[in-house]
């Protein structure tokens, strides 16, 4: 297996993938991917369209079954665990295509996220929005992504950029140990991308990040370590410098792959 920082430091990895595959009928969307992500690491997953990046995320968050292989999170085998349990262990994600709750207000969106990890989440007699601790924690997450001026606005009314901020706010509200970001800057303008990059850069050091990004420059700027996928397979791993100079990666990105 490739060497990763976690093996060097000897600490238990936050995430360990072992020979992970996902087949859709005959299509091998992800085949035999193995890597480890150390605590506090920021790893980018890059690769061209259809490389299998999102599918890999879905297997880690357990939104899709894993055809073959093993997914471990914080030392626990989660390969067959229901998604809502995995979330409780401290894993959150964002989506490439914004997936917020359109008719709910910004604050309600975030409260829903905060509440999801707390014991009273199915409780039926007290008003959700009158739970002080819950609302205050949620307001903090709203501020963190800069939406404090529109807390009462329904998510459907937000502009695209703000929806991306909310998407991130929902995930951050859960204070995850491992955060999966699927193209957080998708569809943003150049200025907004810069803001998003800063937002991600400023996340707490102990939050482990796995980041999918098309924009090489953005990805390499944020990550300590990079995994490159192509046609479902892992074709290169290394630090940003190594990836930049990797011939295979250059071939793929210049369209000389296969």
């Amino acid at each position: 297996m490739d060497e990763t920082p976690s093996e060097q430091s000897g600490a238990r990895p936050v995430l360990r993938l072992t020979g992970v595959c996902r087949h859709y009928g005959g299509l091998r969307a992800v085949s035999d991917v193995s890597f480890e992500v150390a605590s506090g690491e920021r790893r980018a997953v890059i690769g061209p369209n259809g490389a299998g990046k999102t599918t890999l995320f879905k297997m880690i968050s357990r939104e899709e079954p894993t055809t073959k292989g093993r997914v471990e999170f914080l030392g626990r085998d989660i390969t067959r665990m229901p998604a809502y349990r995995v979330a409780k262990l401290g894993l959150s994600r964002t989506y490439q295509i914004t997936r917020v709750f359109p008719a709910l207000s910004v604050l309600e969106n975030v409260v829903l996220a905060t509440q999801g990890l707390r014991p009273g989440r199915y409780q039926m007699f007290k008003a959700a929005m009158s739970n002080k601790a819950l609302v205050e924690d949620s307001e903090r997450a709203v501020e963190q992504v800069g939406l404090q001026r529109v807390t009462k606005t329904p998510a459907a009314e937000l502009g695209h950029g703000e929806q991306r901020q909310l998407e991130l706010g929902i995930a951050l509200a859960q204070k995850p140990r491992l955060l999966l970001l699927d193209e957080p800057a998708a569809g943003l303008s150049a200025v907004e991308r810069g803001m998003m990059r800063d937002l991600v850069k400023d996340l707490p050091d102990d939050m482990t990040l796995l980041l999918i990004e098309h924009d090489m420059e953005l990805a390499l700027g944020l990550a300590d370590y990079v995994t490159c996928l192509h046609n479902g397979s892992q074709v290169a791993q290394g630090n940003p410098e190594e990836i930049k100079n990797n011939e295979r990666v250059q071939d793929i990105y210049l369209g000389r792959g296969d």
Binding site: R62, E63, Y95, F101, G120, A128, N131
Partner: peptide, 22 residues
């Protein structure tokens, strides 16, 4: 209006988002 009610609205608005939120 309860947490359960909010979760129910969550299911209505974006069902697939709910499990990954716990």
């Amino acid at each position: 209006r309860s947490p359960f009610g909010l979760s129910l609205k969550g299911v209505r608005e974006a069902e697939t988002r709910m499990a990954p939120l716990g």
